Amino acid sequence: MQFYVISPLFLLPLFWIPALGVILCVLLLVASIIATGLISYGVRSTSDVPSLSFMNLDMFTSVYVAPWCRVGPYLVGVLLGYALNRTQCTLKLPTAAVLFGWITSLGLCTSVIYVYHGNVHEGGGDSLWSDIGGAAYDAISRPAFAMGVAWIILACVTGHGGVVNSLLSHPAWTPLSRLVYSVFLIHLPVMVWFGMSQRTMLYMTDSMMAYIFIGHVVVSFGAAFLVSLTIEVPLVAVETVLLGKKQWRRK
């Protein structure tokens, strides 16, 4: 919501002076990466609690939820939206460029997810990484993952998605896609509720984590369904009536 409020700072320059708007977005993206790295390093170097632990409130408040540390993916999305608007989703790329894009996207997304696995699995937190290494990961991981997802979107809407586009565009996803925003809002309270309700320590194994993950997904979507029925859909209907539209069809 905060980024939505300040979006004219990005969108107006892109509309009036496109080159200036692109430069501004890139500079802000770089500034966010640098700021995140510096803040993370400062917290890591002065704290004895592993940064992945929810008990490290300094890391949670200073990095995890700080807007200036999370604006990177939003800026990547703004640049992607601008590119799609300028090209009207008709971008034609040579086969070599498409192949390079898919390899890069796959490498970015999988690296961000799995590069930390050995550190967490063996170190029980992030004790195997230096403060600089951990800070670098905090600074780069989110924008890098967003860039990987941005390529998937770009490829799919411009006709370079192939089987990936067929899979992601399948009508079977439509009911779930209408709940994803509610899931986004509610999944963290669900996870916190689960963690705070435990009365004993959990022994984390791969199978246990998979089981917990599946449970979080099911409960989050179930709760999101109720939230959508009781809050989102009625409010959208009221908004439609107030705006004087004759028909309402949820997109």
Rank of each mutant, 00 (worst) to 15 (best):
L106M: 10
P189L: 01
G133N: 13
R44W: 06
V192F: 05
T90E: 12
Q88A: 13
G42T: 02
P73E: 04
Y211G: 04
R178Q: 02
L80Q: 04
G215W: 05
L93F: 08
L24P: 08
S182A: 13
L185P: 01
T87A: 10
V192H: 03
G118P: 04
V30A: 14
L229T: 00
P94K: 03
I153F: 14
S166I: 00
S53C: 02
T90N: 14
K245M: 10
E232F: 03
A224E: 03
A155T: 01
L188Q: 15
I153S: 06
A66S: 12
T87C: 09
L93R: 14
L79T: 05
T110S: 10
G162E: 00
C25L: 04
L128M: 12
T230P: 03
S182E: 04
P8M: 00
K251G: 10
R250D: 05
P171W: 11
L167V: 11
I140C: 11
I153R: 13
C25T: 01
T110A: 08
G118C: 02
T87H: 08
R199I: 09
N85G: 09
I39S: 06
V5C: 13
P189A: 00
G77D: 01
S141H: 07
P171D: 04
L24M: 07
A136P: 05
N85Y: 10
L202C: 05
N119E: 10
R250M: 09
F15H: 11
V149W: 11
S111D: 11
T200N: 08
G124S: 00
I214V: 15
V22Y: 06
H170Y: 00
V227W: 11
N56D: 09
A136Y: 02
